[in-house]
Design a protein around this nucleic acid. Structure first.
Lengths: 222, 222
DNA sequence: AATTTATTTAATAGAGTTATTAAATTGGAT
DNA sequence: ATCCAATTTAATAACTCTATTAAATAAATT
């Protein structure tokens, strides 16, 4: 299996894509693998194999595996947070905008289903990565958090919404949005749901999360 | 560091516990490490070092690392599911019992904070482990699920509870209960919360989850 | 065409991994 | 005291992994 007669043909066959930029190819393959298995279960050999190049080339472009991973992780994490670091200041009512925010976050997860795994695996399990990112994010988005906080507490004062801390509400949204993506592998492999069924199920789930959150925010006095 | 003069003294010092059952010692150390880092980031050498014995001894007792892990995982997972596989048929009203169920599940997580990580890491990422367990559990607990389902839908019919699918409700509960445990490492290391603060925060969070679920179940017609 | 630069590979050092084996040690039972 | 079985260790085979290096090939520039 080592001494294949024509290696470059093999490479082209796998690399495919008419994309002769091997650096991009490696980055993309690495992304897929890291998202699927996490940092430590993917070797640079795996990445090279998938990209259709020699293992040394991965190190040539990115020097270390850690380097390569960082690039990918940073990008994904920024994406994940984007929705929480934006503020819709249109003049629609608060609850409408909140509903949209929840849906937008869920839609983002639909498009990037492996993000929750990546975050749990690498951000939460890895102290070093954590430290680096959290400070960064904390400072950048404090302002937006405060605006949201302010608005929410105002609505509560007006009696439009049941009293709840801003943090608890955000945690509730994230948790309920995220959880179904942890369950997807289970549903796919164990109950043999196909892509269409999954898509349908995700839409239902999105609706249910919005419903649950909205219902949970109704003020208590009937 | 290899040629320590008196190895057995060293071993006793570390093994401590007056527990001369090294097999138990290994199991316990392995559990702590696996829960903390997951299967692939723990080597049998790590386990041996922590238990204070030779690496070969780990294999002597458990033959393979996989074996050792399985034992631990099975036990933890059963524990995690226990609360979802029991049915309280006291004559208290449904909502009271539901509230208790949520709290009991949360309390179990408090006592086993690393379980959510273990499950995400090993059950969801590992196809083989998944298959083995899911069938087992599915068959065993179908009956209990049905009883819960029946009761819930009855309450909905009576108009005591907003319409919701049983599965969605269970997913909501699990997700909101679990999420804070994913966030704990962040809170501990990044915001320097101490044990007492964490304990307090967990109690608050438990209360908030119950509140959110209960509020979300109120029927819509005021 | 010749020369430089960028890309890619083969080979390998060096560290770490699991698992096995044979030998050493320990603590009873005889 | 001796023997025996259980426990524990040292040594090591047989991997896999990351990273580096020197050499080969392809592409671009002069």
């Amino acid at each position: 299996m080592n001494k294949d007669n024509n290696v470059s043909t093999l490479r082209q066959a796998q690399g495919a894509k008419l994309n002769n930029n091997m650096e991009q190819q490696i980055l993309q393959c690495a992304e897929e693998l890291f998202l699927e298995k996490g940092f430590s279960l993917v070797s640079t050999t795996d990445i090279a194999k998938k990209a259709g190049c020699n293992q040394a080339l991965v190190h040539y472009y990115f020097r270390t595996k850690e380097n390569l991973f960082q690039q990918i992780f940073q990008a994904k994490f920024t994406k994940f947070l984007y929705i929480f670091t934006t503020f819709d200041d249109s003049d629609e009512p608060f609850t409408t905008r909140l509903r949209k925010k929840i849906e937008a976050h869920f839609d983002l997860l639909i498009e990037n289903r492996q993000i929750p795994f990546l975050i749990v695996n690498e951000l939460i399990l890895n102290e070093e990565r954590r430290s680096a990112l959290v400070k960064n994010i904390y400072n950048k988005n404090l302002e937006i958090y405060r605006r949201f906080d302010h608005e929410l507490q105002e609505e509560i004062q007006k009696g439009n919404i049941r009293p709840i801390s801003t943090l608890d509400l955000l945690i509730n949204i994230v948790s309920m949005n995220i959880i179904i993506f942890f369950m997807l592998p289970l549903l796919e492999s164990q109950f043999n749901f196909d892509d269409e069924e999954i898509a349908e199920l995700l839409q239902q789930r999105k609706h249910e999360v919005v419903e649950t959150i909205m219902c949970s925010l109704r003020p208590k006095n009937k």
